[in-house]
Structure formats: C-alpha cells, structure tokens
C-alpha cells in the first residue's frame, strides 16, 4: 500500500485547505478567548455576555466547515482498516473509488440543499433569537466547507483513476 504519489497531487490543494484550516484555528482561539473572558466578566464584573451561545454556535460552524476540507485532504477521517488485507488489491482500489463516489454524491446533495436553505433564510430574513444575527451565513459556510470537501474528493477520485493507486 503506497501512499498516493506526491507528484500527482496538486500542491495548491494542500496549501488552500491548509490556509482554511489555519483560519479555523484562529476562530477556535478566538472562541477560547471569548468564553474565557465571558467567565471572567461574570465573576469579576458580574455582567454575563448576553447571547454568547449564539456567537459560539456561529463560530463553531465556521471552525468545522473551514477545517473539513483539510481533514479530508489529509485523509483524517476515522475508518476501520482491519479488512484491508482480506479484500485484496482490487477490493481496496474499488473501495477507495466507490466510497469517494458515494461520498461525493451525498455531500453534493448536502451542498445543494444548504444552498436552498441559504436562499430560504435570506428570503424570510431569519435571525437568531437574542442577538438577531442573520442565519443565512451559517448555511453559506456549510455550502463553502462541504463544497470544498467535494472538490477534494473529486480530485482524489481523479488521482486514484489516473495512477491506480490506493489512498493511505
């Protein structure tokens, strides 16, 4: 089982997904700081930050969606590899290929439906309860993150087909 050849893999994808993951990291640090300060404010200044849960939820979407393409690019998703030897080379090859095809399809549906939700949320001007943050950007981030994830998967399919190699 050789890892996918570095030459066949566009370095640009690595860099782009890494940049997004770094952004996700910054958001995470921001969130740590925010909740940290909120706790201090509650105990020291006796004044809780109102609606902080809505900020946390919004930023969480950003963190997950920005990190997802990077995680997918690095094959960071948990999988059971116990049967790898038993299913043989052909099994591994087709498994890699078809699992990505199915995943691509389902994630594409997800991107499309998220897009519809985005339009819907804009049309009806849906906002969060306390801070009145608009909802549609949440869906926008889902469209972007899952969309990039689809892009990474499609590239992986192309590489598998071109090189006939199995993924890590």
């Amino acid at each position: 089982m050789s890892p996918i050849s570095k030459k066949a893999w566009p370095a640009l994808v690595d860099r782009a997904t890494l940049a997004l993951a770094a952004l996700a990291g910054l958001f995470l640090l921001f969130l740590v700081g925010l909740v940290f300060v909120a706790v201090l404010l509650r105990y020291v200044a006796q004044s809780p930050i109102l609606g902080i849960n809505e900020i946390v939820q919004l930023v969480a979407v950003a963190i997950v969606m920005l990190a997802l393409p990077w995680c997918t690019d690095r094959n960071g998703h948990v999988r059971a590899d116990v049967f790898d030897r038993a299913i043989g080379r052909a099994g591994r090859f087709s498994g890699d290929l078809f699992s990505r095809c199915f995943s691509t399809f389902v994630l594409s549906v997800l991107v499309y439906r998220s897009w519809l939700k985005l339009l819907d949320a804009r049309e009806f001007e849906d906002v969060t309860n306390m801070l009145s943050l608009p909802i549609w950007p949440f869906y926008g981030m889902m469209v972007a993150g899952m969309g990039l994830c689809v892009f990474v998967l499609v590239l992986q399919i192309a590489v598998i087909l071109m090189t006939g190699e199995e993924m890590k």
Partner: peptide
C-alpha cells in the same frame, strides 16, 4: 438578577423588571 428567558419578548419583560435576561436552551 440574571434570569433565563424563553424568548425575546420575555427578555423585554425581564429587562422592564430591572433584571438581566440570559438566553439558554
């Protein structure tokens, strides 16, 4: 007092009482 409210309108009520509304599930 910090008081959990079920909705935005309840938040207005609690504010009118002179308390601080907090939203949470």
């Amino acid at each position: 007092l910090k008081i959990r409210v079920p909705s935005r309108n309840a938040g207005l009520l609690v504010e009118a009482w002179g308390a601080t509304p907090v939203s949470m599930p």
